[in-house]
């Protein structure tokens, strides 16, 4: 092999750069997310789906709601879980109850790195609740 030294040195430097995120975060700990419910959400007791389903798949539900409202003109949602009817609206239904976006949505999103470029772009158009 020609230029053995250069190649190996290059590989090592390359690896060091690729692993930069590990080096930068080495030895650090982070607080686990602790999303808080608003008073209104607490009193409502039940969301439209069981908590663990909401936690893992709220984004799927939001996309379904988006298509139902905009594309099908269907703005009524019946929750089998709590047997109530809701208007399909991010601002007027979801965020009216979960009015504490910073303590609720952002808590996990920030932890999981669902921010910046990879963040959902909902709030570029939809209005964030006033806190």
């Amino acid at each position: 092999m020609y230029d053995k030294g250069k190649i190996i040195a290059g590989l090592i430097i390359g690896m060091l750069i690729i692993m930069l995120p590990f080096w930068l975060n080495i030895g650090k700990t982070r607080k686990l997310p602790d999303p808080k419910l608003s008073e209104k959400a607490k009193l409502a007791e039940k969301c439209i789906l069981p908590t663990d389903e909401m936690r893992s798949a709220h984004q799927v539900l939001l996309v379904e709601w988006r298509d139902l409202a905009v594309r099908d003109g269907e703005r009524l949602y019946y929750s089998e879980y709590n047997q109530k009817k809701y208007e399909i609206s991010l601002e007027n239904t979801c965020m009216d109850c979960h009015s504490n976006k910073k303590e609720f949505c952002d808590e996990c999103h920030n932890f999981a790195g669902v921010t910046g470029g990879s963040s959902p772009t909902c709030w570029n158009c939809h209005n964030e609740p006033k806190e």
Binding site: E39, A44, L76, K84, K85, Y86, E87
Partner: peptide
Amino acid sequence: SLLEVVNPKDFKDNSIEPLTK
């Protein structure tokens, strides 16, 4: 003061009557 925020008696969740489209 807590009750002032949301009084359980006045509490109304976000469910609605069927919309008349």
